[in-house]
Design a protein around this nucleic acid. Structure first.
Ligand code: MG
Ligand code: MG
Lengths: 256, 256
DNA sequence: CCGTCATAG
DNA sequence: CCTATGACG
């Protein structure tokens, strides 16, 4: 059991006075699956408590698990939910290091699954660096590729039009295939993928691996795996990232 | 009603003494549809008689229509069938201009639809230019993309390994999407697409258009269209092609 | 939230 | 030989 994307950043050399690091975790905690939801959520709590990330992006929290995690972390983190029924995204920012100024939702109007974009306007407290945080759980399943590509384009558009003061981080469960990125014309100018900019290390590639995670069982001879969970970055000042392969264990997220 | 791909070539300038032109037609004549099969096949006959192509690639001939067309054109064309049951491909080469030396089939072993590759070893009579002609009707339907891509790769391989004396033309109903070409890594080095090398004229793009051809009716609000029919070329001497938009009318092939 | 297949529109 | 949906492995 592990979050699917865990990264750390350091500030660019133009702000050398305090090489501040930020730790980011993105994690689909499989709220669509009721099985062991209590113990799995306790496991999530344990990882967050150990890792002490500055920023957390969740997908598939449910009302119960959001209340639980907010109950645990309310003193140390701002906890923001992207919905209040079914399953939805959430974001947590560590009060000690990141100042939350505002947050809002951008709906995906043609989503059949109630998906949206959760956006937080924040600031790195120590340096004053403005940070726009975005997370989403894009339309699931291969057959919804067309809707998903539209959602991804809208998210990229949101990154591009953000105030130029912001370093923008868009991370989450994008359910996206590499071929779909090609089909929408690749990443827009100025936006980079954290897996790629950290050297495309093979051990960090798969974030959803049906051979390593039995949370969802499909009776296939050859198991499927994808890089569904990603983080895209429009950087202004924060730019050195490191991807942690141990916490990129294939959505290991879902299962305890 | 029109063939989907009609092209003419002229010899490269290195053989200037006789700027020989060749006319090629590729045409899926919709033998999977029994409706009006007789009158539609007579329509095919009429177009071939008018256009007098040097080379014809057919897909979806059936035993009856092959016998009919061979009966009509046997004196002026070599008529080769790629099968003898159900529906299959066929090729015709005009005896007056193209010499047929041999022909053979390459099976697609994992085809669920009995598809294969029909290959003719020929020679342009006037110039002696060796010409390898290949046609196929690659696996149909969107969901068979994986099988179809394998078939296409095998066909490209066949083009690449052909004796270097040959100019190779592979034309037919490839049922292929542009994205699938990208997924197999694009056209191999040395192979070019006749639509592209003739300037990618938009009026020649769609060869299967459900809005312009009611042979197959689907109750969709927005009709689909694709460039299913293509011709790929590994040229040695023949290299100047012209695509005829009037005969590229969207598989108009199928319907009279 | 996989890949494959069948069916309806 | 389209797209959308749902069942099944
Ligand atoms: Mg899930
Ligand atoms: Mg057909």
């Amino acid at each position: 059991m592990n979050p699917s994307t865990s990264t750390e950043s350091s500030a660019a050399s133009s702000v050398p006075e305090q090489p501040k690091r930020l730790k980011l975790i993105s994690w689909n905690i499989d709220g669509r699956n009721a099985e062991n939801i209590k113990s799995r959520t306790e496991g999530v709590q344990g990882v967050i408590a150990n890792e002490k990330p500055d920023i957390v992006f969740f997908q598939e929290v449910i009302p119960w698990s959001f209340a639980y995690l907010k109950g645990v972390f309310d003193e140390t983190y701002e906890c923001i939910a992207g919905g209040d029924a079914g399953y939805f995204t959430a974001a947590m920012v560590k009060k000690a290091t990141v100042k939350l100024h505002d947050f809002y939702l951008q709906p995906f109007y043609s989503s059949k699954m109630g998906r949206n974009l959760l956006i937080l306007q924040t600031e790195v407290t120590s340096s004053g660096i403005p940070l726009l945080l975005m997370t989403s759980h894009l339309e699931s399943s291969n057959v919804e590729g067309s809707e998903r590509k539209n959602q991804l384009k809208k998210a990229f558009e949101e990154m591009k039009v953000a105030d130029s003061k912001y370093t923008v981080i868009f991370g989450g469960d994008m359910n996206v295939r590499d071929s779909e990125i090609v089909q929408i014309g690749g990443l827009p100018e100025g936006i980079s993928d954290l897996y790629e900019v950290t050297g495309s290390r093979p051990e960090c590639y798969y974030t959803w691996d049906n051979a390593r995670n039995d949370n969802l069982y499909f009776p296939q001879r050859v198991k499927s795996r994808f890089r569904f969970d990603r983080a895209e970055n429009r950087y202004v000042l924060l730019c050195h990232w490191r991807l942690d392969p141990d916490t990129v264990l294939a959505h290991l997220t879902n299962h305890e």
